[in-house]
Amino acid sequence: MRPIVLPSNRPAERFYRGGARISAFRGEDSDAPREPEDWIASTTTVNGEPDVGLTTLPDGRILRDAIEHDPVTWLGADHVARWGADTRLLVKLLDAGQRLPVHAHPHDDFAATHLGRAHGKAEAWYILQGGTVHIGLRQDVEAADLAALVERQDATTLLGLLHEVEVAAGDVVWVPPGELHAIGAGVLLLELQQPEDLSILLEWGDFAIDGAAVGHLGLGFDRALAAVTTTARSATELAALVSTAPGSGSAFPSAADEYFRLERVPARAAAIVDRGFAVVIVSAGVVAVDGKTHPAGTTLLVPDAAGALDVRGDGELLVARPPAP
């Protein structure tokens, strides 16, 4: 098997605006105003949808079905021995055409207990085009006070509770489960996350979604908000969440390793991408992967059976992987 070039896979009519920066990055023509996410090599569906979000391979097969049919070829024997056909990974390009709402995602135990899901939703971002992000509380908040802000839909106060941080291309943001966050308008990022679409929305007034009905994942806000972290992040803790990625090697902090991994691979002359299931993004320049040349914006799905990849050119790759088995 060889690396597979994937076109964009953008669920339509998401609840927030965006998509133009993805089109520019990928060299595509789409100008749909509410396609702000490209779900790359996705075996995950949009919450509540049976098929939306799934990746279709160039040969017409659904990726999820192909992996379930032959998991060792795709994921490798060690991965399958531990997790079966579960890829343990969802990769997205995300273009915030407007500021996203203040929200959080549940952790594994909460998702299993209350939602019957195999995963929660930890996530981390590699910034491609910078701007402002909001993450982590500046002060402790009582659960009752947080619930009152949600009930009043006091978006200004909710946003003001969070640290506001300017990020630039090459920065990374680690978002543990439960952490309140919001992405500012104009940011383009590569997101790695656990393969679920589970968000607890604390605001929704400026968005095309009925947050009062769906923002609590069907649990009611009293229960859903129990998954949200209500303790403040110190300056030291904030520095562990928002940092600049090294020029090569592991890009995310070690706390993310149990969920997913991202490697930054400069390709100024020659390099090797180690064997293993991966999503590879050409983030800059022009790079030849196993003899085929790809410009910036290309995304490649790499089965384990493809083996190690020879990389040459003048550019950079971002290599997204599940956790090590």
Rank of each mutant, 00 (worst) to 15 (best):
L90G: 04
G291Y: 03
P323G: 05
S234P: 02
A66N: 03
D197F: 06
R233L: 12
A245R: 00
R88S: 06
A24T: 13
D210W: 05
E28Y: 06
E13H: 14
E166R: 11
A96F: 01
A66I: 01
V282N: 01
E166V: 08
T56I: 11
A288H: 02
L75I: 00
S248H: 10
G218I: 05
E68C: 11
L192W: 04
R275A: 15
D78A: 14
S23A: 15
E28H: 15
Q193D: 06
F221H: 08
H107N: 12
E35T: 15
L149W: 02
G53S: 09
H103E: 15
A271R: 06
V286W: 09
A235I: 12
F277K: 01
V286L: 10
D314S: 10
V289L: 14
P50N: 12
I4K: 01
A296F: 05
A20S: 12
A111G: 03
R268T: 14
L89E: 02
S283I: 09
Q98G: 10
Q193I: 02
A251V: 07
G18R: 12
E35Y: 09
A305Y: 06
A148T: 08
T231R: 14
L309H: 04
A239W: 04
V289R: 08
L93P: 13
E179I: 06
Q98W: 07
D145P: 04
A212W: 15
L241F: 04
T299W: 11
A66W: 03
A305E: 11
A267E: 04
K92T: 15
A256K: 04
R261Y: 02
H134N: 03
G84Y: 05
D257C: 05
G315A: 02
A24K: 14
I272D: 15
V302D: 07
W39E: 02
A85P: 02
Q193H: 03
Y16M: 05
D171C: 07
D304V: 01
T298A: 15
A185G: 00
G215Q: 10
F110K: 05
D86T: 01
V311K: 00
L93H: 06
H114F: 11
D314E: 12
N47Y: 15
A12Q: 12
R99W: 08
G218K: 01
H294N: 13
A20M: 09
Q193A: 13
H69G: 12
D59R: 05
S8P: 13
T157M: 06
G120F: 03
R2Y: 07
T231K: 08
A324W: 09
V80M: 05
A213T: 14
Q139M: 11
G313E: 01
S30Q: 07
W74T: 04
V279Q: 08
S30W: 13
W174K: 02
M1H: 14
V311R: 00
P322V: 11
G307C: 10
D38R: 06
A81W: 05
V280Q: 13
D59V: 14
V52S: 13
A77C: 06
R275T: 11
A118W: 04
L90S: 14
A143H: 15
E237V: 02
Q153I: 14
V282Y: 07
F207T: 03
A269N: 12
V319W: 10
L238K: 00
G276W: 00
A111P: 08
Q98C: 14
D206I: 00
